[in-house]
């Protein structure tokens, strides 16, 4: 579905992503993991043409660089980490923007198809009761679900997530990941996400790409890539030991 070949991104003389190649096939959930500054988010930005790059990004055989922005958006959707909406838009207005790439013109009336997609997305994410609420009054979790609804309404086949639950509490984290797992069950879809939480990556990912300083250290199935030996080397610490220490705080609770 997605083929990235020799992707290189540089800011000035600093190379952030260095000759990276990977691919994603339908049904996969690729977790991009690695320490801060490994170039994880930059990969997603390159796929959506947010930064200049060399190399090729092919989506179902088409070069994404040569695609029109709207045809790209019909295939690839993005859920970002943070949202700072400037003005008092309502939840519904934000979600409806997701249909931008599908509707032709400004004056063409509302199409039933678009309305149905918006309605479905609002219901799926549980934001339907708050559809008329201003996004400036939402909590972090509600805001993230609003943008998740937007990307659902957009109806892409490939979903890119950039730390989708980084600043959310556990309840929302669980909700968002459950919604995305459910979304992925429909055939012909795939997810690529950048996550810091290694446990989340292992729990939900089918595949993983371990990055270090702009290069791929390992890629393949989650279990193989996220072996403790490999993680220890990249993070420069005993990862499992740290996680055990964290978990052991709960020992004796029952």
């Amino acid at each position: 579905m997605l083929q990235v070949h020799n992707l290189t991104v540089s800011y000035g003389s600093h190379t952030v992503v260095d000759h990276l190649s990977f691919q994603v096939v339908e049904g996969q959930w690729l977790m991009i993991v690695g320490p801060n500054g490994a170039g994880k988010s930059t990969i997603l930005n390159a796929i959506t043409q947010g930064v200049n790059y060399t190399g090729t990004v092919l989506l179902n055989g088409t070069d994404v660089k040569k695609q029109k922005a709207s045809s790209r958006a019909r295939e690839i959707g993005v859920l970002a980490q943070n949202h700072h909406v400037g003005y008092e838009f309502t939840v519904e207005e934000i979600v409806r923007l997701g249909r931008y790439a599908h509707s032709s013109g400004l004056l063409s009336g509302r199409r039933n198809e678009d309305e149905a997609a918006v309605q479905r997305a609002l219901e799926l994410t549980g934001m339907a009761p708050q559809r008329q609420q201003s996004v400036l009054t939402l909590s972090g979790g509600e805001l993230q679900r609003t943008f998740l609804a937007q990307v659902f309404a957009q109806g892409p086949r490939l979903l890119l997530l950039d730390e989708p639950t980084n600043h959310l509490d556990l309840v929302y984290q669980k909700q968002v990941f459950a919604l995305i797992s459910e979304w992925l069950k429909t055939p012909g879809r795939a997810v690529v996400s950048v996550v810091h939480d290694l446990s989340l990556a292992r729990a939900f990912g089918t595949n993983a790409l371990l990055m270090h300083k702009g290069r791929a250290v390992a890629q393949g199935e989650v279990k193989d890539v996220m072996s403790s030996g490999q993680l220890d080397r990249v993070y420069g610490m005993d990862v499992r030991d740290w996680m055990r220490t964290m978990l052991s705080q709960w020992d004796g609770d029952e």
């Binding site: 922005a69 709207s70 958006a73 959707g77 970002a80 909406v85 943008f147 937007q150």
Partner: peptide
Amino acid sequence: VGEDNARHIG
């Protein structure tokens, strides 16, 4: 809403 969001929706 945001320039990045604008790019993401096409």
